[in-house]
Amino acid sequence: MIDHLDHLVLTTARREACIDFYTRVLGMRLETFVGGTPPVERQAFIFGRQKINLHVQGAEFEPKAHLPVPGSLDLCFIASIPLQAVIARLADCGWPVIEGPVLRTGATGKIRSVYVRDPDHNLIELSEPA
């Protein structure tokens, strides 16, 4: 019945720091769009054929999760560059790796990963196929 994930929603308490992390550190593109009922201006991080819609805590768009809380996500991304290049980019950006590289099991097989935390303390796993 389900084919793929279209988007997910990230709730942040630190909008500017969140935008900095996902754009400058992870290289996603920030997009502004109009959506919802009534239509309002919104923002999303675009990468590949997916996006992460951004909600600011206390100013979320309806409908929303029952308990939208910053720091409750655990996300894994497959990088478009080798993991060593990911680690170098993180270092260049002054972003600490909290674990890894380690071997894990992803959706389609073994992956090699490093872990970081975003400004809201969500756990972000950055990976390459092993």
Results as ranks from 00 to 15, higher is better:
2 I>Y: 05
4 H>S: 09
5 L>W: 05
7 H>F: 15
8 L>E: 03
9 V>G: 05
10 L>F: 10
10 L>S: 08
15 R>V: 08
15 R>C: 06
16 E>R: 13
17 A>D: 15
17 A>Q: 15
17 A>K: 15
18 C>T: 15
20 D>K: 09
20 D>I: 02
29 R>D: 07
30 L>V: 09
30 L>Y: 10
32 T>S: 13
33 F>T: 11
34 V>I: 06
35 G>T: 11
38 P>M: 05
44 A>G: 14
45 F>A: 13
46 I>R: 15
47 F>R: 05
48 G>Y: 01
49 R>F: 03
49 R>A: 06
50 Q>H: 15
50 Q>G: 14
51 K>P: 05
52 I>K: 08
55 H>Y: 04
56 V>C: 00
62 E>Y: 10
64 K>D: 01
68 P>H: 03
68 P>N: 04
69 V>F: 03
69 V>Y: 04
70 P>L: 12
74 D>C: 10
74 D>R: 05
77 F>C: 09
77 F>E: 08
79 A>H: 07
81 I>L: 02
81 I>C: 05
82 P>I: 13
84 Q>R: 14
84 Q>A: 15
89 R>Y: 00
92 D>E: 15
94 G>P: 06
97 V>W: 03
99 E>C: 01
101 P>R: 05
103 L>Q: 11
114 V>Y: 02
117 R>E: 06
124 I>Q: 10
129 P>T: 07
130 A>H: 12
